[in-house]
Write a protein that binds this DNA or RNA. Sequence first.
DNA 1: TAGATTGTTAATCGATTAACAATC
DNA 2: TAGATTGTTAATCGATTAACAATC
Lengths: 238, 238
Amino acid sequence: MSLSRQLGPSRTRDDGRGIPDATVARLPVYHRVLRDLADDGVQTVSSEHLAQVCGVSSAKLRKDLSHLGSYGTRGVGYDVSFLSYHISRELGLSQPWGVVIVGVGNLGHALVSYRGFASRGFEIVGLLDSHPDVVGEQVSASGVDLLVQPMGELESVVRSSGAHIGVIATPADAAQGVCDRLVAAGVRSILNFAPVVLVVPEGVEVRKVDLAVELQILAFHEQRRVDDSSPLVQVMQA
Amino acid sequence: MSLSRQLGPSRTRDDGRGIPDATVARLPVYHRVLRDLADDGVQTVSSEHLAQVCGVSSAKLRKDLSHLGSYGTRGVGYDVSFLSYHISRELGLSQPWGVVIVGVGNLGHALVSYRGFASRGFEIVGLLDSHPDVVGEQVSASGVDLLVQPMGELESVVRSSGAHIGVIATPADAAQGVCDRLVAAGVRSILNFAPVVLVVPEGVEVRKVDLAVELQILAFHEQRRVDDSSPLVQVMQA
DNA sequence: TAGATTGTTAATCGATTAACAATC
DNA sequence: TAGATTGTTAATCGATTAACAATC
């Protein structure tokens, strides 16, 4: 990773590699805010202002952007659409990615009806469920109608659609099996909503969204607040 | 936070304060896996085994647990239910937390039907929506029936229920307004599913779950894989 | 030129890791 | 006692921050 540094300072873009994970995780936020600004007709934005809207410090923002290259103008700021374009390019949003959603319960439906998909170049190319009541249902995803297909079709749907991303929205006990089949069918990017630690071969990227984890982190801090108003700690406030 | 360090090394539990954020974020995973193990009748587990199931290194696991105290036995491992109890205590799960969900669309319904709520001591104490079609609907959350109430009732629902956590599952443009009202009503822990950076006063804890962000991070890595199979980089593989 | 703002540096902070002494 | 496994240490790594030189 840092090998590329040795190639000399001639390149501006940090070699296209070696963008820190923490930076990558923030780029989508910058990108969305920049698009909002563009929609509002804003042409130029300073790191100070953009950072404030994104909820980060301006130092962090500039550091993050410096990994992509030098897309600002000293004394002026950043051209909103120019920067937006370069972030989307870096994130790989300039090409569309096919998404297969496995599990079309309430959560699956919520994901399908989520407008943020299409607007960012993601296209739902397949819906799968094991429940007979759901299979065959017609669901409309950003204008396109999709038919929920039976689980047996998973491999054929992935292969025929060339889907790149698999979303697991099944109950916990089905998740690992679905994951295995997605991976076997060639999917190497998985978004997992089931509260399970998925086991995957090297090279497969899994991201997990776990409602219970988020709530428990909140509970931890909430408890701290309660503790902090207890007598023992009030000493420190004096 | 690190002030408490100065009080001396007499305490084992890292002072009850100062547990690193990264550790806190992993505790819920350890806790869930421990409960699963307990359900399977497992009595004792080594850091090596537990870590493997949780998808972390054993060094990281032991380091994390060391912040809570010394709940293992050298040469033996950890007593599953003993450790489980102490983690749940640390996370504040030994007391129930009331949760208000604002926005009862597909996502809101998915959250309500999520079994992980009640099983971890969270209790849904209020459902709110602005849409006339949804208001008045009866929704069943882990056995208890709840009525979706109009947004105007937000303050009274929060106050009468003593809710501690607010979940925002509204469209993006309504999120900040809902957030402001929740905070004004006394809620200091917010879980936000809307793709907006919420502005909150100091002391309010916000966690954000953003589907689009997760997908875009996956897309970034997916693009990298494609790049890596391009001719220019193949040189490095030789 | 003067004012503004970027891109980069260097210091600090926090998290991860490997190794091992302590101890069951 | 011998084997196993924890809890802790110290080294490393990565991320954050503040400050400022470069430059529009």
